[in-house]
Design a protein around this nucleic acid. Structure first.
Lengths: 149, 149
DNA sequence: ACTATATTGTTCGTGACACCAACTACTTCT
DNA sequence: AGAAGTAGTTGGTGTCACGAACAATATAGT
């Protein structure tokens, strides 16, 4: 039946990947909601954990249009989570930075996300988790070539 | 209850699961957008492939509020993808059904989703895919107990 | 230097999506 | 029949994302 190797109709796997992604996303949404945040917001905070990007760079990291990044930062700023600093070199550029409150929330939510996602993986024994991590790593690693320009 | 074991700090795996979920979601969004649809819409169509649920049942399947289901069906109906039939037994209930156009789109998009998601898994060799499917299956299987009320 | 072009962000308008609270219209229970 | 419950809808609010158009600054090209 599997005449085409690359398209090997592996319904179980395709279905599983899709369902798993919904599961993970809903757990993320829960963790975010527990702190009156949303998934895009925690993504934003996650990126700002080790960066101070401009709007455009931010947009690229999130895979969004720059105007979407503006909006995301607007709302986060309104909640006191981030701040718009001005770049010294470029008069029109902006530097998005977390506030102390933002950093604190990043930590809290981060821990919560780890706990909750780890709980999902808790269905597997340590060896299974190890293996899963490797397989996922290989998938994401292959993709890194594509997405990193 | 090994409450500690579930917290095994496995940063690689947690991170991988999260990133993978975003990858899958974005591929789903692409596949949907290729047919002027959205992820919630293809989810809706997917459910209607083998069911004719009422609004409430639909909402439960999607993990949404019933009013959200109403909106989703409203928009899908406006595009001629689904239809509101009336239940014969219950005068207030509704039966959401796909139209011929909706069924056709379901097929087309379904194929596209399979192709694109399979491409993600294509980074693995057949044995790896097999293994991954099993691991994911175990995770989802464990969850099924929780979510199926 | 000085205009032409490119880049960074913002704004505006539109639309999808999701929630909650309130409401209508049936059903079922007593 | 009357009370209570259930199925769906409506209206209001907020987030999110996009594209097009715009201001302001930066970088070329000559």
């Amino acid at each position: 039946m599997d005449s085409m190797a690359s398209q090997t109709p592996q319904p179980d796997l395709v279905d599983g990947l899709v369902q798993l992604s919904f599961l993970v996303q809903s757990v993320l949404a829960e963790a975010a909601a527990a702190h009156t945040l949303t998934v895009p917001q925690i993504r934003l905070l996650g990126i700002l954990r080790d960066r101070e990007p401009g709007m455009l760079e931010l947009a690229r990291h999130l895979g969004l249009d720059k105007s979407s990044a503006t909006g995301l930062v607007d709302r986060a700023e309104r909640r006191g989570l981030v701040r718009r600093g001005s770049s010294d070199l470029d008069g029109r550029a902006v530097k998005v930075v977390t506030t102390p409150l933002g950093r604190e929330l990043t930590e809290t939510v981060g821990t919560e996300v780890i706990t909750r996602i780890a709980a999902i993986a808790g269905a597997l024994d340590p060896a299974g988790r190890e293996h899963l991590a490797r397989l996922i790593g290989r998938i994401l690693g292959t993709r890194a070539d594509v997405s990193n320009g």
